[in-house]
Design a protein around this nucleic acid. Structure first.
Length: 273
DNA sequence: ATGTATGTTGCCAA
DNA sequence: ATTGGCAACATACA
């Protein structure tokens, strides 16, 4: 579910709401969410404060006072939220983090259990990104870098290339479709065919769409940020994703849906060829 | 009811 | 080396 704008919205909310106190207790209801042995995880968190929250693409980094960082990836359905200490979780609540002297707790909920928590030394964050071959974040990457990555693609279509986190980090299925319809660019186009000038314009559109989505607190339905007073209102501005059969905002042609690289792809057959 | 789709990513094999 | 397919899991909806 969460792409760059959603993760950014969540991080901003966490900065405002996660207690500054040290962690008092960690409870696991479904421990495989955590990559480390459970005892190791509990020992690493106990007594630490979560000092900073940062993001690269869809990865979150929660920096602990001890010099360890918690890498959190929500995959499709992960949710983190701060709720009352006595809030009773449902069957999908897998982790609970309690703080000293705080009426609040931080919980992790994930219907599909794809998300995960990892423990790494804070100084090795760059190494972690390198090991995953993660491209620069979509808000940071330069036109030249994006062009270079797209040029390396032999046959991949633009849609598939933009979903590839080793090309540009942070875009997912929703925002790629939203960017391409605004750019009047076919998702089927071989990525390698874009010129440097076209890539520069494409990146501008990427920045614009992401900025608008962040301003709207993301797209995904209210529940992704359940517990917060944030709705995720970018869905009101969707022009392609989920709009199958509806008129294109630009020319009125009906939006079509197809499959590219295994992903549902929404596009205007007239504007986007 | 049975099959299909769902925002992600890593692993597999062609 | 690249790329597409599938699995990990649970739910909603034709």
């Amino acid at each position: 579910m969460p792409e760059l704008p959603e993760v950014e919205s969540i991080i901003r909310q966490l900065r405002k709401t996660v207690p500054a106190q040290s962690i008092k207790k960690v409870v696991g209801h479904y421990k495989p969410i955590v990559k480390a042995p459970w005892r190791t995880f509990v020992a690493a968190l106990a007594g630490q404060r979560i000092e900073t929250f940062s993001r690269h693409g869809k990865y979150m980094f929660w920096q602990l006072s001890s010099g360890t960082t918690l890498v959190v990836h929500l995959r499709m359905t992960g949710q983190v939220m701060v709720v009352a200490r006595d809030h009773s979780g449902d069957a999908h609540t897998h982790l609970e983090i309690f703080f000293a002297n705080s009426p609040q707790k931080l919980i992790y909920r994930d219907v599909r259990k794809f998300g995960h928590f990892e423990l790494i030394p804070t100084p090795s964050i760059p190494e972690y990104l390198r090991a995953r071959k993660l491209a620069p974040d979509a808000l940071v990457i330069t036109p030249a870098e994006l062009y270079q990555q797209l040029q390396r693609k032999k046959t991949a279509r633009l849609k598939a290339a933009l979903l590839d986190q080793r090309v540009i980090a942070g875009l997912g299925n929703i925002y790629v479709d939203e960017v391409l319809i605004r750019e009047k660019r076919s998702p089927q186009l071989p990525a390698v065919q874009l010129t440097a000038v076209q890539v520069k314009r494409l990146l501008k559109t990427i920045h614009k769409v992401l900025a608008e989505a962040i301003a709207a607190c993301g797209t995904t339905l209210s529940d992704y940020i359940y517990g917060y007073k944030l709705a995720g209102e970018f869905q009101l501005q969707l022009r392609a994703y989920g709009q199958t059969g509806k008129p294109c905002y630009r020319c009125g042609t009906k939006i079509r849906k197809t499959t590219i690289a295994g992903r549902g792809t929404h596009y205007c057959p007239k504007c986007q060829g």
